[in-house]
Computed example of a mutant assay.
Amino acid sequence: MASVRRVTSVRRLDSLAAEEPLEIRTGVAGPGRRRPLTVTMRTPGDDLDLAIGFLLTEGLIRSADDVVTAQLCAGAETPNTYNVVDVVLAADVPTPQVDPARNFYTTSSCGVCGKASIDAVRTRSRYDLTTDQLVVPASTLATLPDRLRSAQRGFDRTGGLHAAGLFTAAGKLVVLREDVGRHNAVDKVIGWAVRQRRLPLHGHMLLVSGRASFELTQKAWMAGVPLLAAVSAPSTLAVDLATEAGMTLVGFLRGSTMNVYAGANRVRT
């Protein structure tokens, strides 16, 4: 005779990861109004870092000196919903042109979606990673996921946020950012580094909580990061780009195991 299990239900409050649109507006200093550049779906918080990081990784600015001000804006036409960032660029910075074929609108799941082609996002970095002398013991790399996970306060509450963490060569966490979008978490880290005038990030490692995509590899290259690690798989284009850039790319970094797909000379076993 089959046993019968009693099923019960419980109602309770649950914490969910916030997801809201963020519009980034740019323009040079002066009386002219800033023009909308992009809208991205993100988790509110560290929005100035996100905006500055996006501009840097898209090749629209080169350093903190290219930004006069960056602020959450409000006014008669823009109620202060904290979902618009206004960035005033220095006078000598070319005004970003919105290319309809490129389509800067991004979602939280895939920042590269909507781009016309891979060539449209292959922005060349100003940093030569082949000269970076970073060498990291594999045993140090193996400790990074646990250190990243232990610092993820938002993930503890919601279980729905990606994370990106910047580490020193010794494995010390420098800064961590969380977001519903992997690319946003990386932009927040890089934007923080831009505002702190830490670029290029030579001698540092960037760890992402998901997979290593082409876009995340490009963002790391734009910031001068010599080693990108992910707890999941890389894509073929990510490996190709890391090889081209002279970057070390590590995937499936879990426990004591990892796969090194490019730049194995920086990982000491």
Results as ranks from 00 to 15, higher is better:
residue 2 A to T: 15
residue 2 A to W: 15
residue 3 S to W: 12
residue 3 S to G: 12
residue 4 V to L: 14
residue 6 R to N: 08
residue 8 T to A: 02
residue 8 T to C: 08
residue 15 S to V: 11
residue 20 E to N: 05
residue 21 P to F: 05
residue 21 P to V: 00
residue 29 A to G: 07
residue 33 R to I: 04
residue 35 R to V: 09
residue 37 L to R: 03
residue 39 V to K: 04
residue 41 M to W: 15
residue 46 D to E: 11
residue 46 D to C: 10
residue 51 A to R: 00
residue 52 I to P: 01
residue 53 G to S: 07
residue 53 G to H: 03
residue 53 G to K: 01
residue 55 L to D: 09
residue 56 L to S: 06
residue 57 T to H: 06
residue 59 G to F: 06
residue 60 L to P: 13
residue 70 A to F: 02
residue 71 Q to Y: 06
residue 71 Q to C: 00
residue 72 L to P: 01
residue 73 C to K: 06
residue 74 A to K: 07
residue 74 A to D: 13
residue 81 T to F: 09
residue 81 T to C: 06
residue 83 N to W: 02
residue 86 D to W: 05
residue 87 V to I: 14
residue 92 D to L: 08
residue 92 D to S: 14
residue 94 P to H: 11
residue 98 V to H: 09
residue 102 R to Y: 09
residue 110 C to D: 14
residue 110 C to L: 13
residue 111 G to M: 10
residue 113 C to Q: 15
residue 119 D to G: 13
residue 124 R to I: 02
residue 125 S to Y: 10
residue 125 S to V: 08
residue 127 Y to T: 03
residue 127 Y to M: 04
residue 129 L to W: 06
residue 130 T to K: 13
residue 135 V to P: 04
residue 135 V to Q: 13
residue 140 T to H: 00
residue 143 T to C: 00
residue 144 L to E: 01
residue 146 D to A: 15
residue 146 D to N: 12
residue 149 R to S: 04
residue 150 S to M: 02
residue 152 Q to F: 03
residue 153 R to N: 10
residue 153 R to W: 08
residue 155 F to I: 01
residue 159 G to K: 12
residue 161 L to V: 15
residue 162 H to K: 15
residue 162 H to P: 01
residue 164 A to P: 02
residue 169 A to E: 13
residue 170 A to Y: 00
residue 171 G to R: 03
residue 172 K to Q: 07
residue 174 V to R: 11
residue 178 E to C: 03
residue 180 V to C: 04
residue 180 V to M: 08
residue 181 G to A: 05
residue 186 V to N: 08
residue 187 D to R: 15
residue 193 A to L: 07
residue 198 R to S: 15
residue 202 H to T: 10
residue 204 H to K: 11
residue 205 M to N: 02
residue 206 L to N: 08
residue 209 S to W: 09
residue 211 R to L: 00
residue 215 E to C: 03
residue 219 K to I: 11
residue 222 M to E: 11
residue 222 M to N: 12
residue 224 G to W: 01
residue 224 G to Q: 05
residue 225 V to N: 07
residue 228 L to H: 09
residue 229 A to L: 13
residue 230 A to M: 13
residue 230 A to D: 12
residue 231 V to E: 14
residue 232 S to W: 00
residue 234 P to N: 04
residue 235 S to N: 05
residue 237 L to N: 14
residue 240 D to W: 03
residue 241 L to R: 12
residue 244 E to Y: 12
residue 245 A to M: 08
residue 246 G to K: 03
residue 247 M to A: 10
residue 249 L to H: 02
residue 251 G to T: 12
residue 251 G to M: 04
residue 252 F to L: 08
residue 253 L to S: 08
residue 255 G to C: 12
residue 255 G to R: 07
residue 256 S to K: 14
residue 260 V to N: 03
residue 261 Y to T: 03
residue 262 A to F: 01
residue 265 N to A: 15
residue 265 N to K: 05
residue 267 V to M: 00
residue 269 T to D: 14
